[in-house]
């Protein structure tokens, strides 16, 4: 029973860590959205000399919005995991007390608890474990999908950097904006890698 409690605690800590990482990505995704808006205005000001950059900054803005949508789904999913793990923590706590009751009881009292705990373990813990495993699988899939999306963002940022070179008088500012994109998307990629690592450890 101690293992169940330890596993549950570990699972809860893992979910808290994942949630924190997702929060970081969400904040960065929001930043990208603002950066894309800025890039669009800048491209408009640059006019003919930054047509290519303008197309890319529109794509980057679309990317930022898709990323935000993806992140909000991820957050909902981790909220679901927190609910399930919290229920498991509560059950594990009740189990600890029941285990003590079993030790203190004798005769029919003990047999009653034995029988009860067996049924309970099979029903409650198995169900919760199943739910957590399913959530973890969905979460991993979602992280993989997000990583793919971010990879696209990274390609867009690199292309924007190339287009910036053709920006004439605006070249320096455009270069600055596209470098910011590249750096920020890099941050997201690192967060996602770390999320993938947490997930891989659980599957």
């Amino acid at each position: 029973m101690a293992t169940v409690t330890q596993d549950t605690g570990r699972e809860l800590r893992r979910i808290v860590r994942t949630n924190e990482e997702i929060k970081r990505v969400v904040a960065t995704a929001f930043k990208i959205n603002l950066m894309a808006m800025n890039a669009i205005f800048l491209a408009k000001r640059a006019g003919q000399t930054a047509l290519g950059f303008g197309v890319l900054s529109n794509e980057l803005r679309r990317f930022a919005m898709d990323l935000q949508k993806q992140m909000s789904q991820l957050r909902e999913m981790t909220y679901g995991s927190v609910n399930t793990v919290t229920a498991l923590v509560k059950q594990a706590r009740l189990n600890r007390v029941l285990e003590r009751a079993r030790k203190e009881s004798s005769g029919s009292g003990r047999s009653l608890i034995d029988e009860f705990m067996r049924t309970r373990h099979n029903l409650v813990f198995a169900r919760h474990r199943e739910q957590i495993a399913a959530l973890n699988r969905r979460l991993s899939q979602m992280i993989a999908d997000t990583a793919q999306l971010v990879e696209l963002g990274s390609v867009l940022a690199r292309s924007a950097k190339i287009e910036a070179a053709y920006g004439g008088a605006f070249s320096t500012s455009l270069m600055q904006v596209s470098s910011d994109f590249e750096r920020t998307i890099g941050e997201i990629q690192r967060s996602l890698e770390s999320l993938t690592k947490h997930q891989d450890a659980t599957l």
Binding site: V97, L98, R100, A101, K103, E104, S105, S106, G107, S108, G109, L112, I113
Partner: peptide
Amino acid sequence: FPAVFSALSTEFDPR
């Protein structure tokens, strides 16, 4: 609870 349950079950069926 453990102490109450175990004492109670010596005199009465807790179910």
